[in-house]
Amino acid sequence: MPIARAAASVNLEAVELRVLHLPLVAPFTTSFGTETVREVIVVRVRTADGDGWGEIVTQHEPYYSSEYTQGAWDVAQRFLVPALMDAGTFAPLFPEQVGTILEPVIGHRMVKAGLELAVLDASLRTQGRPLGEYLGAVRDRVPSGVSVGIQRDPAALVEAVQGYLDQGYVRIKIKIKPGRDVADTAAVRDAFGEIPLQVDANSAYTLADADVLAALDRFDLLLIEQPLQEDDIVDHAALAARLRTPVCLDESIVSAKAARDALALRAASVINIKAGRVGGYLEAVRIHDLCRDAGVPVWCGGMLETGIGRAANAALAALPGFTLPGDVSAAGRFYRRDIVTDPIVLDDGHVRVPTGPGLGIEIDPVALDDVTVERVELRR
């Protein structure tokens, strides 16, 4: 279901970038470190007909990804925003053109995704059209899973999972790393029986750890996410052949081409789609379409987004090929105070897909200012 050029064009007048520091309700620990404050960049595009918002989901340090905040801040100001401005000088700008305009800059997909989303939001708002309808959503709400960081010990993990189950989350994902894998998974499975459960390794293992990963087969997991390094596609294929647990790729999937190659090599039987990681929501839809046509399930991953990215993820996860619960959790899972006026909440294990124009959210200007640590506005 390719997206036709159906969104309205916009006339760019300015692009505002802000670095935000949002305190987390609790530390979030993975194999690559612990976050207590989420650092993120939000984008505001100003047009003749109104504003649009986007989110650049980088982190403070380049441990999860080669992209990080200060690098994103630099490349956005020096290269990507000027490219958009130049393209919109002599003709109106369509959201579907953003990817092509920014393509000459190598990489920096998270920045490109944030800029594309802001232009798309501004465009759809002028049409009074929700993002979900534009992308091809078929549901008005989506099942919500939660990602649980590595805890102090298995008992603390069980306690944390109990809290999220009590809140109504319909799928649990736990982070694992060498030494914190089999025992942690066993503790959760023993405590809660046959709940939908998956594990996320964030590239913490190598093919030499195949026996340890195979020991997870006995827990009847939905999947094991990104066990090996992002460029280890061939090794993922070898590992997948040795496991009963479905292998899901996350960091390895940076584009529709990468997804196509991974499926051809049988390196994955499930794919996690993160719009920021693949360069935008339009590329995310292309990956969705590829996997749907191949009969491969997909789900929507999360990057601790603010209400901006969380609303967009809910719209994406409502497409028909998203058959597994994703990481579109309630805003309160991470933040006591979001930057939007109506944060996403959990309703009977689901989150509702926004139905207002564009992203369907409104920014809380006071909350936004309170967490802004750096701001710049670029004009023609």
Rank of each mutant, 00 (worst) to 15 (best):
T206K: 04
L135T: 05
S123F: 03
T69I: 14
A83E: 05
D153C: 07
L304E: 05
A72D: 05
D200P: 03
L359W: 07
R125G: 01
V10C: 04
L117M: 12
V37A: 09
A275Q: 11
A317K: 05
A267E: 10
V199W: 03
V285E: 05
V298Y: 04
K177I: 15
S252T: 06
A208W: 02
R242V: 06
L216E: 00
I271E: 06
P27K: 01
A312L: 02
E13V: 13
D86G: 14
R141P: 02
C291E: 07
I273H: 03
G33H: 07
A208L: 07
A241N: 10
R189I: 11
I273W: 02
H108Q: 09
A26I: 12
V19R: 14
L117Y: 08
I287P: 02
I106Q: 14
V254A: 13
I287G: 01
P92V: 07
I308M: 06
L213M: 01
T89K: 15
E116D: 14
L207S: 02
V158G: 06
E283W: 08
L131I: 02
L20I: 08
L197V: 08
Y68F: 15
L228G: 03
L20V: 08
R337W: 10
L290E: 03
L84N: 01
V43H: 08
A187Y: 07
Y68R: 03
A118P: 12
I273S: 00
R336G: 15
A294I: 07
A314M: 06
G132F: 00
L135G: 05
A267K: 08
V351N: 00
L197T: 07
P23Q: 11
A122N: 11
F192D: 09
G168H: 02
R266G: 08
G33S: 02
R171Y: 08
Q226N: 09
P82C: 07
L80C: 03
D86M: 13
A7D: 04
I195Y: 01
D342L: 04
R379T: 15
I101T: 11
T58F: 05
D231V: 13
K175G: 12
H236W: 09
G295H: 04
T185G: 10
Q97G: 12
G71Q: 09
V234Q: 14
V25G: 13
L165G: 09
P130A: 07
A315H: 03
R266Y: 07
G276I: 09
A275D: 08
N11G: 12
S66K: 15
C248S: 01
I363G: 04
I150P: 05
F322T: 04
G33L: 05
V254I: 12
E16P: 08
P154Y: 07
D49Y: 14
P62A: 06
V158A: 02
H60T: 13
A367L: 10
R242P: 04
E251R: 00
R141E: 10
E39K: 15
L17E: 00
R44K: 15
Y281V: 09
V158Y: 00
I344F: 03
V366E: 15
S329A: 14
A72M: 04
